[in-house]
Simulated assay, not measured.
Amino acid sequence: MAPIQRCELPEAALLRGYLQTGAYTDCYATDVARPVSHAQYVEAFYTTAVFKLERWLLARLVARPSTDLQAWELARGTRAVFAAWSVEARAADQLLMCDFHGRTRSWLMCVPTANGRAARLFFGSAVVPIVDRRSGQASMGRAFRALLGFHKLYSRILLRAAVARLARGARSNDFGAS
Rank of each mutant, 00 (worst) to 15 (best):
E73I: 01
D68A: 15
G77D: 08
A119Y: 03
R120I: 08
V128H: 09
A177C: 07
A118P: 07
F122I: 05
L58H: 13
G136Y: 05
G102D: 10
I157T: 14
V62L: 10
T113D: 14
A164C: 04
R142E: 11
D68W: 04
E88I: 05
R79Q: 15
V128P: 01
L166C: 02
D68I: 03
C110H: 00
L158A: 10
Y24I: 06
F82T: 00
D68S: 15
G124R: 00
V111T: 12
A167S: 14
V131N: 02
A33R: 09
P112E: 10
L61S: 13
C7P: 02
G77M: 08
A119Q: 06
R60Q: 14
H38F: 06
A177Q: 10
S125C: 13
M109G: 03
A91H: 07
L158F: 07
D68M: 08
V127F: 08
S155E: 11
A29L: 12
E54Q: 11
R76E: 10
G102L: 11
A167K: 12
A59M: 10
T25F: 00
L9Q: 01
D132L: 06
L148A: 06
R168T: 15
R64S: 14
H38I: 02
C7M: 09
T104A: 15
R76T: 06
C7L: 05
E54M: 10
S37N: 06
F123V: 01
R16N: 05
L158D: 00
G141P: 10
R145N: 13
F45R: 05
G136I: 03
M140H: 15
L148W: 06
R55C: 07
R156K: 15
S66R: 02
M140Y: 13
R165A: 07
W85F: 15
A167L: 13
L14T: 01
R90E: 09
A75K: 03
G17M: 02
M140C: 04
